[in-house]
Design a protein around this nucleic acid. Structure first.
Length: 573
DNA sequence: CGAGTCAGTG
């Protein structure tokens, strides 16, 4: 049996037993000492995830080349055996075997999976020393590693230096920006198209994801149009991504349309649609869909129940939520985790059943996180329970002392109750800990362009008209009884100045611009990076009534549909 | 003899 026949036998191996048989053969007839044969054996073991066998073989090999090492490193990486992967790589370096353009991507993969940017930089360095950074795959894998570790600047730097940028690497970059700056991500997509790189389905899924993150409806429509024009089939992954995109761009109807058109749906698709109904405040539809899902024989998982309980809580379906919480473990074998408890605290809290919410927190056995305490705090804010709020606050700040948003929320809550000494305390803590309020931004799309506003913004070319419109709207609102709620302004300034700042919150500016620039029959769609402030919420409700406009706001947590003076969130958010 | 990119929650 020569090399060729050994290798062709290895191609035909269907299970571990076969490989071991061929292995034994090669030992008997001596072809085992042929590096090509040995490597193919190694590779076949790795392919069948039999890294123990591979390791045994590797240890017994009299000769090894960089390929043998790459197969080992890559095999452990794919198996998720991080320690062995790193150990093997270190051994390669120690023995003086020069890593090649296949070894580095193999170990970089592990750095990516573990988000181990420190080791990633070591690999980067090794690549530099061995002159491997010019290799396309080495570079591409490092870009991917930096991207997944959220070190976008470094990913970008390497990407810029790549001689040829292929579709996969463009996709990695688009995906990286989707996670940290969705706006930039779509600009990347545009650049890719301009350079004549034709996207495939995976690239489109990534772009769809970026649209979802940005919440930009005109981009969503453009991207869907492109997808259907190019004839991409609506498979589970693309379809699910599109459900999410439309829902997060503010249209549950479009999301549902995609959902209905999908031939194959899995638990992720169903959960995405249930979640969509949830954050749009359409609890009943979420429940209906859940029951339809069960009758289709799809098994709900943890995420499904988070989405479902969240839907109940945002629609005020208290009893239904409590029942689902009970049956999720008893009937569906899904054990409640901290996210489910958070939904329940939110649900009970909304109903004013703060004692039960607290009891649930006290008796739960899973580890508590900051979101759980935030949910309790939110309930305290609505029902003005300052005693419980202090308890929630101390747990919250213990868990996340560096999160500026918590201090702002706490100051707002205590300001609302007139507890000024507490407000001062939280503000002092913020200053002491050198924490800065995250600046609030609001986006609005007009004529396929995105405009961004910050508080008191005057950078918009039509700034003058926007402020005139805002002032005239405020006058109308005041005649109808609108009183600005200055408790939401956390600044040490005179009442009049406070009011001025409140009047120019980014959200109000965006709405004013929407009133000027968006046709009356269309809704005004805006997105925010923070939660809606109480005064802007009141303002939006009144504008929807007095100006007879529908306003759809996506905030950091959920959607608010303002129409005829009411909001879909029922004033609880 | 071997390599990289995609979907749902809080």
């Amino acid at each position: 049996m020569g090399h060729e026949s050994c290798i062709s036998l290895l191609y035909q191996c269907r299970n571990l037993f076969h490989i071991r048989q061929v292995h034994a053969h090669t030992v008997v007839n001596g072809t085992f000492h042929d590096l090509v044969v040995a490597n193919k054996l190694l590779y076949t073991y790795a392919l069948h995830r039999a890294m123990d066998d591979a390791h045994y073989l590797f240890d017994g090999m009299t000769m090894r080349d960089p390929t043998s090492c790459s197969i080992m490193v890559g095999g452990f990486a794919k198996l998720g055996d991080y320690a062995s992967c790193y150990a093997m790589f270190r051994e390669v370096l120690r023995r003086g075997v020069a890593p090649d353009n296949y070894t580095l991507p193999a170990v970089t993969r592990t750095c990516r999976d573990r988000k181990d940017v420190r080791m990633g930089r070591v690999i980067h360095d090794v690549g530099l020393k061995h002159g491997l950074l010019l290799d396309h795959f080495v570079c591409a894998s490092l870009v991917d590693m930096y991207a997944k570790c959220l070190v976008v600047e470094d990913a970008q730097m390497l990407f810029d230096r790549m001689l040829s940028k292929d579709l996969v690497t463009w996709t990695v970059m688009i995906g990286a920006y989707a996670d940290c700056n969705a706006y930039e991500s779509l600009i990347f997509f545009d650049r890719m198209m301009e350079e004549g790189v034709v996207p495939d389905k995976i690239a489109m899924v990534t772009v769809v994801n970026a649209c979802a993150k940005l919440g930009a409806m005109h981009r969503a429509r453009f991207v869907s149009e492109y997808i259907s024009r190019k004839g991409f089939s609506l498979d589970v992954i693309l379809g699910t991504a599109m459900i999410d995109m439309y829902a997060k761009c503010g249209s549950v109807e479009c999301a549902r349309d995609v959902f209905d058109r999908m031939k194959e749906k899995n638990v992720i698709s169903w959960s995405a649609m249930i979640a969509a109904y949830g954050y749009h405040g359409r609890g009943k539809e979420a429940l209906d869909l859940f029951h339809m899902m069960l009758s289709c024989g799809i098994l709900p998982n943890r995420v499904t129940f988070v989405s479902l309980l969240y839907a109940c809580s945002h629609a005020g379906l208290i009893e239904e939520g409590l029942r689902f919480f009970d049956v999720m473990w008893e009937e569906h074998a899904v054990r409640p985790d901290v996210k489910h408890y958070t939904c329940m605290v939110d649900l009970l809290g909304r109903a004013g059943r703060l004692d039960e919410a607290l009891k649930m927190i006290e008796t739960m056995t899973v580890e508590k996180d900051e979101r759980l305490w935030s949910a309790l705090l939110g309930a305290c804010r609505i029902h003005k329970d300052m005693k419980l709020a202090e308890k929630a606050a101390s747990s919250l700040l213990e868990l996340q002392p560096q999160n500026a948003g918590h201090y702002v929320l706490l100051s707002n809550i205590f300001a609302k109750a007139g507890k000024w000494e507490k407000v001062a305390k939280f503000r002092d803590m913020m200053t002491q800990r050198k924490l800065k309020k995250v600046p609030g931004w609001t986006w609005i799309e007009v004529d396929n362009k995105t405009y961004q506003f910050s508080v008191g913004d005057r950078t918009h070319p039509q700034s003058k008209e926007i402020y005139e419109m805002l002032m005239s709207v405020i006058k109308k609102l005041e005649l109808a009884g609108y009183v600005p709620d200055t408790d939401f302004v956390l600044h040490d300034v005179e009442e009049e100045v406070k009011q001025q700042m409140l009047y120019t919150h980014s959200e109000k500016l965006a709405i004013a611009f929407g009133l000027i620039a968006i046709p009356e029959e269309d809704p005004i769609r805006i997105s925010k990076n923070l939660r809606v402030c109480g005064d802007c919420h009141t303002f939006s409700k009144m504008v929807s009534a007095i100006m007879r406009r529908s306003i759809i706001v996506r905030d950091a947590n959920r959607f608010h549909h303002f129409s005829e003076g009411t909001c879909s969130c029922g004033d609880y958010w």
